[in-house]
Write a protein that binds this DNA or RNA. Structure first.
Lengths: 329, 329
DNA sequence: AATCGGTATGTAATCGATTACACATATATG
DNA sequence: CATATATGTGTAATCGATTACATACCGATT
């Protein structure tokens, strides 16, 4: 590989001059500049970012830890991150935990050892080990999607969004509303959305049957089974069901259709996420739009603030949501 | 930041000994090892990958150039890449062109300057400038999705897949088959799939009306309009339409439904990509499964072969496909 | 007793850039 | 004319690791 020294030699200058030219730092004469440019052209020289980083401590890389590659939620978030960060010359270094919680800590260290300038974590849980590790990280860090104490975060109005959705169902005349959730170890999706559901039901003095509350995992299949449970085990069948993700809602939709019921006449259905899928199923799904793309952008701006040590917002960044009212309710 | 020198000093050894311990190269006494381990524990020392790479020329990073972040196709491909590469200790550095062709060359250089050990390009086009740049890259390189001369590639059976789909439509009794394609600057999706369509029609001596062939861009909206054109402008309405992506097919589906026609009775419809969406629309979409996840894995294996200089397959890797026969045909 | 191989460690060069500092020359200012 | 000031360039230290080489000690072998 051709180095700055080699370029310098060929252009008959010192490496310092080449560096000055490259970085527009300090004076370089017209003639020297031309000779250097010519050599660079001929040799295809590209400076080693690695050597540069070693000296300057700037890598222009942000580490991103994701629970899963290829889910629509993360895709959108990464997209938002990239939009903002690429404009500032940053690149993203991916780390995929595949929902393996232990790996988050491992990756935190790995990314730090790579001298990334900041780390964005899309979290599905908030355990103490992880929190401790984050505290001693000592580089700009942002978490998206979960509320972590004393940590710059971008979070969603999980509870009030869920609550508003239930309110909407009730407003539409439903009094028997079922709920398909996920494990509460995912505080945001599992706990807070459930909290919203319970709060809304309580506020309207509506009783909840045990079997109306189902806990599923994050896939369509699981939504199907949860709905099946609700239908088969309930004493009183609900007339509406709220699932904490669109995938679960679509699984539920499949079961409802199979059971020969009409949506929304016999059973209303709502999800969360405003996934693309939700727009194209029949009937189209009423859902909550959390604007994950926007969350990525906010996280990017936040990490940039932390890196540049200015305009650092205090407190969490709480993103708003929108109810997407479609045909399933 | 704490460095190897600092660790060495505190453990009362030289940095060479610390390095030897860390890398299991050379001899280190039990006592020295324990002291070093203790210091590392206390200080939370993590070696700088940057300094390491500068010396060893190994970064354990693979650059990935994508046309678009967050499309299902790329997501799956990246997922496949990551699965294989993460197992070998590699991480992915993302570069997103946002369909801006000029950026591909820019990123090629950028990634090289970052000393990535290899580059995977998910290509949408194959222009000469790009090809020239790839030739002089001189680091392991793999292209996915487009056939580039003299370049290690992972490609799909675009033409025969399209042809087989048309054959299938014909077999189902259709003789008037329309086509929704994209610009031929995307050789794989735009040219080869069209070629398959034309070949199949020709083989069965079926005439094609001009307006049956529409060119769209990659979104649902565009599929809708293409279908509208077909319906409004054709002298003879087709009874089946093949769209080169599922999104386009779903756009077409929307129009067909709006027009009050039944699928597949009045109009059969097929797409490409086996997107998740295709499974959940009504009716479910007949499509072609190219197994993008698998493509990512193959690309990863190929780049690993190139890096390790062994088991290098000669010729392209051509991936098989499967017809997914659903209710829309 | 001399020699050899295994064990253990340290010194210093190296990777490819940046940058503080010194120095030289040219031009402008009072 | 002396002195500032701007321009242009090179030398060498530095970032934090790896590693070739030198050195030293030890027990075993001849």
């Amino acid at each position: 590989m051709i180095t700055i020294k080699e370029v310098a030699k060929r252009a008959n200058v010192s490496s310092a001059t080449v560096s000055r030219m490259l970085n527009d730092s300090g004076y370089v004469s017209e003639e020297a500049r031309d000779r250097i440019l010519k050599v660079i052209e001929e040799t295809g020289y590209v400076p080693s970012e690695n050597a540069k980083s070693l000296r300057t401590k700037k890598t222009k890389v942000i580490g991103v830890i994701l629970p899963k590659l290829g889910s629509e939620t993360t895709s959108r978030m990464v997209n938002g991150l990239d939009r903002v960060l690429a404009a500032e010359g940053y690149q993203l270094l991916l780390a995929n935990t595949n929902l393996n919680a232990g790996k988050e800590i491992e990756f935190l260290k790995l990314l730090k050892s790579r001298d990334v300038e900041g780390i964005v974590l899309s979290a599905t849980n908030t355990n103490d080990l992880l929190l401790a590790e984050i505290q001693k990280l000592n580089i700009p860090f942002v978490v998206v999607g979960q509320d972590m104490p004393d940590t710059p975060s971008v979070v969603f109005k999980e509870t009030s969004a869920a609550q508003e959705m239930i309110d909407y169902l009730i407003e539409k005349g439903h009094v028997k509303v079922a709920f398909i959730g996920v494990s509460e170890s995912d505080r945001a999706v599992g706990m807070l959305r459930k909290k919203g559901y319970l709060a809304a039901m309580k506020e309207h003095d509506l009783p909840i049957e045990d079997h109306w509350i189902q806990t599923a995992v994050f896939d369509v299949e699981s939504g199907y089974h949860a709905m099946k449970n609700i239908m088969e085990k309930s004493d009183q069948r609900p007339t509406a069901v709220f699932a904490v993700t669109d995938r679960l809602a679509i699984g539920a939709m499949n079961y409802i259709k199979e059971a020969g019921l009409r949506i929304p006449e016999d059973m209303a259905l709502a999800g969360v996420g405003a996934s693309e899928l939700s727009q194209y199923v029949t009937p189209s799904l009423t859902t909550i739009d959390f604007q994950y793309n926007n969350a990525g952008q906010e996280a990017a701006n936040l990490i940039l603030s932390l890196i540049n040590q200015k305009n650092i917002p205090k407190g969490k960044i709480v993103l708003d949501y929108g109810l997407v009212k479609k045909d399933s309710v």
